[in-house]
Amino acid sequence: MKSLKDLEAIREKAKQMTGIREGKAQTKIIVGMGTCGIAAGARDTMKVILDELGKRNLTDVTVTQTGCLGLCEQEPIVEVEIPDQPRIIYGKVSAERARQIIANHIVNGNMIGEWVIGRK
């Protein structure tokens, strides 16, 4: 390291790693992890979401889980919460659907209407 610029570069990179502890993340993805969700494959959905966020370097997105919403037949259920927008709930989110939700909804802001099962 020979300049402040080098330090800045390391900082920016490292910040992505610790950002989760700041509580400042804007967008939230919530995966239903009740027994029903897990049985329907929510664990794979979760892995894919994390993988996709990692590939795209989307470090300001928080991924959490929740329990059963009461719509077990729609599991795996994924909720997307973007500030100042209604919360969108997707049903039957397979690994493939999860990738598309990240690409269309999280990155480009286009909700995928046909998979939406509710909004709050």
Partner: peptide
């Protein structure tokens, strides 16, 4: 209690060594 003390990167992420850089440059 917020960073991994064995990781210099995590220290740098929280503005570590910025003060030293500012001072000497």
């Amino acid at each position: 209690g917020r960073i991994d003390p064995d990781s210099i990167d995590e220290y740098i992420a929280n503005d570590g060594y910025q003060a030293l850089g500012k001072a000497v440059t």
